[in-house]
Amino acid sequence: MGQARALMGLSAQLDEELDFREGDVITIIGVPEPGWFEGELEGRRGIFPEGFVELLGPL
């Protein structure tokens, strides 16, 4: 779908969440519900709030 750069780090609180560090580039693979993305980073998949990232182009 597209890519996004992390504006800040996120520590996953639930198993389905993706954790990442500020500056990581995450591949967006879905939008499971409004306000959330599903992404992949370094072979890991999970969901995260859209406010933690900036899109690097259209989805």
Rank of each mutant, 00 (worst) to 15 (best):
G9K: 10
M8I: 14
F20D: 05
E40D: 03
E42Q: 11
D24F: 07
P49V: 00
G23V: 04
G43H: 04
G57L: 06
L7G: 01
E38I: 10
A6K: 04
A6I: 06
E38H: 08
L7P: 02
D19F: 11
L55V: 12
L59V: 12
A4V: 08
E54T: 08
D24I: 02
A12K: 13
L7M: 12
R44T: 06
G2S: 12
R44S: 07
E16R: 12
I29H: 05
G57I: 06
M8C: 14
E50V: 10
E22N: 06
D19R: 09
M8K: 15
I28T: 05
A6T: 00
D24V: 01
P34S: 10
V25R: 09
E33Y: 08
E42R: 14
P49T: 03
T27N: 15
L7V: 12
E54F: 01
E38K: 12
G43D: 07
G51F: 14
F37T: 02
F20N: 01
L56W: 00
E42T: 09
P34Y: 06
L41W: 05
L59K: 11
G51M: 14
D24E: 11
T27F: 01
T27R: 10
V53I: 04
G2W: 11
W36R: 06
P34R: 09
L56P: 04
E38F: 11
E40Q: 10
F48W: 00
G9F: 02
R45C: 10
G30V: 00
I28M: 13
G51I: 14
R5G: 05
I26G: 02
A12V: 06
F52Q: 05
G57D: 09
Q3M: 12
M8G: 08
R5W: 00
E16V: 12
Q13D: 12
L7F: 01
G2V: 14
G30N: 01
R21M: 13
F48L: 11
R5D: 02
D19Y: 11
L18E: 01
D15Q: 14
A4F: 03
E54L: 09
M8H: 13
G2M: 08
A4C: 10
M1E: 09
V25G: 04
G57V: 09
G46S: 03
G57Y: 11
P32T: 08
S11N: 13
Q13R: 13
E16Q: 12
L55W: 04
E17A: 09
P49M: 08
F52R: 08
E33F: 10
A4N: 05
E54V: 05
L41D: 00
R5V: 12
M8S: 12
E22D: 06
L18W: 02
M1T: 05
M1K: 10
E17N: 09
S11F: 09
G9W: 01
F52M: 14
E22V: 12
V31K: 09
S11C: 10
G46K: 01
V25P: 05
L56E: 04
L55E: 06
G35N: 06
G30E: 01
L56M: 10
R44F: 00
D24A: 06
E17C: 13
E50D: 11
F48Y: 04
L7C: 09
G39Y: 05
W36L: 13
G51E: 11
P32Y: 05
S11T: 12
F48C: 01
D15R: 11
G2L: 08
F48S: 03
I47D: 01
A6D: 00
E38Q: 09
P34W: 00
R44A: 07
A6W: 07
G39F: 01
T27V: 03
E50G: 07
R44W: 00
A4W: 00
E22P: 11
R45G: 01
R5L: 09
A4L: 01
I26S: 03
I47R: 15
W36T: 10
E17V: 11
I29W: 06
L55S: 05
D24L: 02
T27H: 09
T27I: 01
V25K: 09
P32F: 04
E38R: 12
G35H: 04
D19W: 11
L59F: 05
R44C: 02
A12Q: 09
G30P: 12
G43W: 00
L14N: 15
A4M: 01
R21P: 05
G9C: 13
I26M: 03
L56K: 05
E50S: 13
Q13P: 11
V53C: 06
R21S: 14
G43T: 07
E50K: 13
G51S: 15
L10W: 15
L14Q: 15
Q13M: 11
I47E: 05
V25Y: 08
D24G: 03
L7R: 13
G57H: 10
E17R: 12
D15H: 09
V31R: 15
E17L: 11
W36P: 05
G23W: 01
L7H: 05
A6N: 02
S11D: 15
P34Q: 11
R21D: 12
D19T: 15
Q3V: 12
